[in-house]
């Protein structure tokens, strides 16, 4: 069972939240130049990582706001919680911070699974 720390409400039980899939997926564009393969990749393909995974959660039974969680999918350990507009505080494999701070919550939610 997960204990997630909503950045707005504090630590709450798993049942208050809804999982929203992989974070930091960018909608390809401009639209007229997007191939079927690119669109399918954007809509359906996921990293589905075993290990450290960056994902979106909604505090559905609370403040109803979205936020990001970096979580280990094997141990379920929560590694970081950060807001939709913030880059991930953890480095990725290349050492660079993940996520684009210019992404608005609206575009970040575009690919809800």
């Amino acid at each position: 069972m997960l204990l997630l720390e909503c950045p707005y409400c504090g630590p709450r039980a798993e049942i208050e939240f809804r999982y929203g899939g992989e974070s930091h997926i960018r909608r390809p564009g401009p639209h007229a130049e997007v191939s079927d393969a690119q669109w399918a990749d954007y809509l359906y393909n996921r990293k589905n990582l075993k290990g450290e995974h960056r994902e979106r959660w909604l505090h559905a039974a609370g403040c109803r706001r979205w936020f990001n969680v970096a979580r280990n999918t094997v141990t379920h350990q929560v590694l970081a919680v950060y807001k939709m507009t913030e880059p991930c505080p953890l480095p990725d494999d290349t050492g660079a911070p993940v996520g684009d701070p210019s992404m608005t919550p609206g575009t970040a939610m575009g690919g809800a699974a």
């Binding site: 899939g21 990749d41 393909n45 996921r46 990293k47 589905n48 990582l49 075993k50 999918t73 699974a113």
Partner: peptide, 18 residues
């Protein structure tokens, strides 16, 4: 459940969630 993990070794991305 490990389809994405094994497929990634061949450079493939799958529409799968585990």
């Amino acid at each position: 459940g490990h389809s994405s993990v094994i497929a990634a070794k061949a450079g493939l991305r799958l529409p799968v969630s585990s």
